[in-house]
């Protein structure tokens, strides 16, 4: 997983939900549940393995489901232009 959150985005957890403000596009995104957990994990630089572990622990889903959820979420975020690929060092 070589993805990172766009540096110009502002985000904050408010009232249990995570809000992302994309000022360049004047858009706002709202994440909750596993999506918010993954976003914060990405922001903290967590690995794919640790993100899957966090999802299985927090939401009582099996590893296969967590893996699929993670992949689907990341695709959605890439499509929305909120995360981008980075070259491995």
């Amino acid at each position: 997983m070589n993805l990172q959150i766009r540096k110009d985005l502002a985000y904050r957890r408010i009232a249990g939900e995570l809000f992302i403000v994309d000022s360049a596009k004047a858009e706002m995104h709202e994440l909750n549940g596993p999506a918010a957990l993954i976003w914060e994990g990405l922001a903290a630089g967590k690995t794919e393995r640790s993100l899957i572990s966090a999802i299985t622990a927090e939401f009582e889903v099996d590893e296969k489901t967590a893996c699929e959820d993670l992949e689907a979420f990341l695709k959605t975020m890439q499509k929305a232009g909120l995360v981008s690929s980075v070259q491995p060092r």
Binding site: L9, I14, A15, E17, F19, V21, S23, A24, A26
Partner: peptide
């Protein structure tokens, strides 16, 4: 709901500063 209030609050915000710091 707090989330609903926040969404409308942000939509009603008058702000012309599109910088990351402003966000």
């Amino acid at each position: 709901r707090a989330g609903e209030a926040l969404k409308l609050l942000l939509r009603c915000l008058v702000n012309f500063d599109k910088s990351h710091a402003a966000a």
